[in-house]
Design a protein around this nucleic acid. Sequence first.
DNA 1: CTTGACCCTGTAGTTGCTACAGACCCCACA
DNA 2: TGTGGGGTCTGTAGCAACTACAGGGTCAAG
Lengths: 140, 140
Amino acid sequence: MRDHAVVKGMQRAELARRTGSNLETVRYYEKVGLLPEPPRTAAGYRAYDSTHERRLRFVLRARELGFSLDEIRGLLRLADERDRPCADARDVAAVHLADIRAKITDLKRMERVLKDVVAQCGDGTLPECPLIETLFGKAA
Amino acid sequence: MRDHAVVKGMQRAELARRTGSNLETVRYYEKVGLLPEPPRTAAGYRAYDSTHERRLRFVLRARELGFSLDEIRGLLRLADERDRPCADARDVAAVHLADIRAKITDLKRMERVLKDVVAQCGDGTLPECPLIETLFGKAA
DNA sequence: CTTGACCCTGTAGTTGCTACAGACCCCACA
DNA sequence: TGTGGGGTCTGTAGCAACTACAGGGTCAAG
């Protein structure tokens, strides 16, 4: 297993495989400035090392938590350039947490309505479909 | 108030205003085939009537419930072309409901993690920020 | 020395809008 | 009758965050 090897000079596909990401996504992150452009071999191939992998993993974990690429850029800057970024980073997370809670609230509203109409539809033999009538505004 | 008037030959801005939608959105829905192209005046202006409004309201309500435009196209087709579309419509809604529940599950996971790290950050004076350390993978 | 698997670049597609630019048109007021 | 300020029209470009090519170069194994 190369996962145990010294990680130096890997190529894009290997980095993507090691981190479970799509290799096109890695390029995209470089293009939009989330990841540094790695050095190139004589033939122009990207040669990553473990610092690139570490940074990519940061981005991927942040994406899993729903941070936008812009927020991640900010978090990376905080992680890089400051001694004590905790208050700022916490604020970014707190704002994002509020976003997520708002989304959950929205989705729960949708879930409630949909659950109800699906239940009203029953076995689907009604002549007037409750879902369609709801959407046309016959009932709230 | 024109809301009480006979609704015939309204223009785009009025339709948008009456339904609380953006007028560019209405045009977009026409372009992608969700709404029929309305007849035009001699000058080429769109002239809507209440059937257009009814259909637009259907689309807007479905969007509020999180249906994709593709799903809405399907629901409109069911509403138009069939005698007893309830079983099919219910299935569309049930699939969508499952999507929404999956999204809620994801968001709740994010919420839990974020709530924890924000709490760990406390007043933001820690030298090692728990959020940043978490993202770098120091802790799970 | 060829074959196939990798890599490179740039660009176009996705979803659901939103926002122009530049050109009409229409009505009221003077 | 002219003009001003609003409407409307079209097409196109932009947003997020990827994803998927096309058309080429490179490299190592057989």
